[in-house]
Design a protein around this nucleic acid. Structure first.
Length: 574
DNA sequence: GCCGTTTTCGGCCCGACTGTTTTCAGTCG
C-alpha cells in the first residue's frame, strides 16, 4: 500500500539522517510524518489529486512535494542521494537493541562494518573493544542484541500478548508492596499487534517490587534492572517492561507509559503553553524549582486531562489522530463498549468446522448476555471446512427451529457463503433466500490483482442476499498479508447497497483493521463486529473486535449488532 | 522539516538506565 511505502521511506530517511548526525528536529519531523501517514485512512493518491497532502498532520510543503514526487515517478531523488552516502546494511544495525546511530556510525567509520553478520564476527573476535568509548561490556551487549534480532522478536497478536500480560499481572497484583497495577503501552491502547508488554505498578518500595518482578517464573533473562524500572525476557521471547512509581504519580505514569509517544508529546506541548510541565510523576508549574511533592495533578489520568481543559481520552484514541483537538472542543465520540453488543453474527458449529453443537454455542452466547446469535457454518464449496450440502442445511434448519422453541436466545439460521473468483456464490439465490443471515467470504484467490478483487467484493455487495462481508481484506497475522483493495470504491458500494462489513474479532485477523474501519465509518458503512468462533471460549474474542471499533472512533450507532433483533432485521438488506 | 491565540523565526517532551566516564553520551520508551 502506498501510504505504508512512503511512511517506510520517510522512516529510512530519518535513520540515515540520524547516522549522519543531522538536525535532530528534522529527524523527528520525518518520523512524525511517517507515523502520521500510517494513520491516514484514505489512499494518498486521492489526497494528492485533491491537493490536500499538506493538510495531513506533520506534512508541510517540503514533504508534500516528496510524496507527490513518489506518486509521479516512483522515487524520491533526495532519498536516492542519501542512500549513496550510507550503505543499506548499516540501517539494519539500528535494529539491534543497544545500537543506535552513533554506534553504527562509529562501527562503519572505524571498521567499515555495514551489516549484522560482519558486526557479529568482529564482536566474537573481540575486535570492538579497542574502539574509543567501547569496551568488553558493550561488546557483550551487542552480541546479546544480535541474538535477539536473529530470534526475530516480531510483533505479536493481541491475544498472545494478553496471555502473557494477564499472567504477570495475576502473579504480581497480590504482592504485599504492590498498591496499584495496570498494563500500559500499545497493549492498553489495544493496537492490533504489540511488540512488548508494558506494566505499571505504584508502590512505596520499588526495589522490592522489582525483585518480585524479575523472579516471576516465566522470566528467562533480565535485560536491565534499575531503581524504578526493569525489563525481562520470557521463555517465549516476549519482552516485558516494568515501571514503578509512587502512588500519587500513578495517573501521570499511566498516561506517560500508555502513550502513544505522539499523543504524549502533543499533550506536553499543550501543557507548556499553559506554563505547566508534565512528566511521569505529575503536572508541575514549569518555572518552580523541581519538587515532586508539589505536583498539581498526577494521581489519576482524568485529573491531568481536566487540568488541561479537556475530558478523559480513552486509551484506544491516543494516537494523535485528532483526539486532542476533538477533546478540547468537547467533541469526542462516545465509544462503543462490549456491553453494547446484543448478538454475534458469525460463528460455526459441528455442522461445519466448529467444535461445539448449535445448542452449546447458543447457550454460551446466552451466558454473555446476548439476545441473538447467528450460526453461520461454511457453504458447500468449502470442502476442507466440511461445507454444508442441501441435505445438511435442511437438518440444521430443523434443529434450529426446534431449539428456538426452548431457549432464551434467538438462534439465526445463517451461512458463511463462499465468494468465488468472480464474486459469485456457491448456493443458488433460492437457497440463499431461506437464511436469516448470509455472510459472504473470500477464502481463495487472494493473489488476484487489486482491480479484480475490488470488482469481486463490489459484486458481493450488490448481491441482494448477502448481508455481511466477513474479514474483508483476508489478512491473517503470521500467515498472509491483506490483499490489495480499492477501499474508496469498495466502501462506497457497501454503503450504497447497505451491506454490513465485518470487523472480525479473531486476534490473528482483526479485519477490518482500525485504519480501514475508520475509513469505512467515514464512508457511511455500517459495521458488524463478530467473533468467527469455532469454540465457545472464542466468543470472548469480541473484546478485540470492539477494541478495533473503538480505535476507529466508532459509537454504538456505527455497529449493526448493537441493535435489537427486530431493529437489525429491519435495517439489514432485503 | 514543521508550525503558529507569545505566528514567518526560533523554537521543537521528558526522564531512566547503562557503560563509560570523572560529569556525561548514547540509547530507549
Amino acid at each position: 500500500m502506498l501510504n505504508k511505502k512512503v511512511a517506510d521511506i520517510f522512516r529510512n530517511i530519518a535513520h540515515i539522517l540520524e547516522i549522519k548526525g543531522d538536525n535532530p528536529f528534522k529527524i523527528r519531523a520525518y518520523l512524525k510524518a511517517a507515523d502520521s501517514l500510517e494513520n491516514v485512512t484514505e489512499d494518498l493518491e486521492d489526497v494528492e489529486r485533491e491537493g490536500r497532502l499538506a493538510q495531513i498532520e506533520g506534512i508541510g510543503k517540503d514533504l508534500a512535494a516528496k510524496i507527490s514526487e513518489f506518486i509521479g515517478f516512483d522515487r524520491i531523488k533526495y532519498y536516492d542521494e542519501l542512500k549513496k552516502e550510507v550503505p543499506g546494511g548499516l540501517l539494519d544495525l539500528l535494529s539491534i537493541p543497544g545500537v543506535g546511530p552513533k554506534t553504527a556510525k562509529l562501527l562503519y567509520d572505524k571498521l567499515k562494518i555495514a551489516d549484522i553478520n560482519t558486526l557479529e564476527k568482529y564482536a566474537r573476535e573481540g575486535k570492538l573493544r579497542n574502539l574509543e568509548g567501547l569496551k568488553e561490556k558493550t561488546e557483550e551487549n551487542i552480541l546479546r542484541g544480535i541474538e535477539l534480532v536473529k530470534k526475530g522478536r516480531e510483533r505479536m497478536d493481541l491475544g498472545t500478548a494478553f496471555i502473557t500480560a494477564d499472567k504477570f499481572i495475576s502473579l504480581l497484583q497480590d504482592k504485599p508492596y504492590v498498591k496499584k497495577i495496570s498494563f500500559a503501552g500499545s497493549l492498553r491502547r489495544m493496537k492490533d499487534t504489540v511488540r512488548d508488554i508494558d506494566i505499571l505498578i505504584s508502590s512505596a518500595h520499588p526495589e522490592k517490587v522489582i525483585d518480585d518482578f524479575t523472579r516471576v517464573e516465566e522470566v528467562k533473562s533480565i535485560l536491565n534492572k534499575g531503581d524504578t524500572k526493569s525489563a525481562v525476557l520470557t521463555g517465549d521471547g516476549v519482552q516485558v517492561d516494568l515501571r514503578v512509581v509512587p502512588d500519587n504519580s500513578f495517573g501521570a505514569a499511566l498516561l506517560y507509559f500508555s502513550g502513544s509517544k505522539a499523543h504524549n508529546i502533543k499533550l506536553r506541548q499543550l501543557a507548556q503553553k499553559k506554563g505547566l510541565k508534565i512528566n511521569e510523576y505529575g503536572v508541575f508549574r514549569a518555572r518552580s524549582v523541581e519538587d515532586r511533592a508539589k505536583a498539581i495533578a498526577g494521581k489519576t489520568e482524568n485529573e491531568i486531562y481536566k487540568l488541561l481543559g479537556m475530558p478523559f481520552i480513552e486509551p484506544e484514541l491516543r494516537e494523535d489522530n485528532g483526539e486532542l483537538e476533538a477533546a478540547l472542543k468537547n467533541k469526542l465520540p462516545v465509544l462503543i463498549n462490549s456491553d453494547d453488543i446484543k448478538g454475534d453474527l458469525h460463528m460455526h458449529s459441528l455442522y461445519s468446522d466448529g467444535h461445539y453443537s448449535i445448542k452449546d454455542m447458543a447457550n454460551a452466547a446466552l451466558k454473555k448476555g446476548y439476545d441473538y446469535v447467528a450460526l453461520t457454518d461454511h457453504s458447500i464449496a468449502l470442502k476442507v471446512a466440511n461445507g454444508l450440502d442441501l441435505a445438511a442445511l435442511k437438518r440444521k434448519r430443523l434443529e434450529i427451529e426446534k431449539l428456538n422453541k426452548g431457549l432464551k436466545i434467538r438462534i439465526l439460521f445463517g451461512t458463511e457463503v463462499e465468494l468465488d473468483n468472480d464474486g459469485n456464490t456457491d448456493y443458488s439465490d433460492k437457497v440463499l433466500s431461506e437464511f436469516d443471515i448470509v455472510v459472504g467470504a473470500i477464502h481463495s484467490g487472494f493473489r488476484q490483482p487489486k482491480e479484480k478483487i475490488t470488482k469481486r467484493l463490489i459484486k458481493a455487495c450488490r448481491n441482494r442476499h448477502i448481508d455481511i462481508i466477513a474479514h474483508p481484506t483476508g489478512r491473517l497475522w503470521g500467515v498472509r498479508d491483506a490483499y490489495e483493495v480499492d477501499f474508496g470504491a469498495f466502501f462506497k458500494a457497501a454503503a450504497d447497497t447497505g451491506t454490513f462489513l465485518e470487523i472480525n474479532s479473531f486476534p490473528t485477523r482483526l479485519d477490518l483493521n482500525d485504519v480501514n474501519a475508520r475509513h469505512a465509518k467515514e464512508s457511511g458503512v455500517k459495521i458488524a463486529i463478530s467473533t468467527d468462533s469455532h469454540h465457545i471460549a472464542q466468543l470472548d474474542f469480541i473484546r478485540f473486535g470492539v477494541a478495533v471499533a473503538r480505535r476507529a472512533w466508532m459509537t454504538k450507532h456505527d455497529v449493526a449488532n448493537t441493535l435489537s433483533l427486530k431493529e437489525l432485521m429491519r435495517v439489514k438488506k432485503k
